[in-house]
């Protein structure tokens, strides 16, 4: 077994169906990428051209960022896949701790001091 670990392969064991599945998955990823570019453009236009109402700009671009965050994690990093329960648990833990950390820092440093 250990010999096989550093040996290259002359072919892939993927069946025809699996290759089709990978190709379909790749098309989905490219679509997700195009969508992310679109979201980025939207965020920059909203700020640069002041297209959105002033009070609404910040929530709007934050929402776009969250959508992009989810797309990146679930599609590019495959969190949506079935064998990713533990990675999901780790990321959720990270987000659960990170959210109060950000809020606490903003309140303690920003609101209290200034």
């Amino acid at each position: 077994m250990s010999d096989d670990l550093s040996k290259p392969f002359s072919q892939s064991a993927l069946s025809h169906e699996e290759i089709l599945k990978i190709n379909r998955e790749r098309r989905i990823q490219i679509t997700a990428f195009a969508f992310m570019i679109f979201l980025t453009l939207l965020a920059f236009l909203a700020v640069g051209m002041e297209m959105v109402e002033p009070g609404f700009t910040i929530p709007f671009i934050l929402l776009l960022a969250v959508v992009q965050f989810v797309l990146q994690l679930f599609y590019f990093m495959h969190l949506k896949d079935k064998d990713h329960q533990w990675p999901n648990a780790f990321m959720m833990t990270g987000i659960v701790v990170a959210t109060p950390a950000v809020i606490a820092l903003v309140l303690l440093l920003g609101v209290t001091k200034y």
């Binding site: 780790f90 990270g94 701790v97 950000v102 303690l108």
Partner: peptide, 22 residues
């Protein structure tokens, strides 16, 4: 993935500091 979960928290503290001090 454990590492990435931890990185999320580390970056969050830096984001919070920036938002508080900007």
């Amino acid at each position: 993935w454990v590492f990435l979960g931890g990185e999320t928290i580390m970056f969050a503290t830096f984001f919070g500091t920036f938002l508080g001090l900007r």
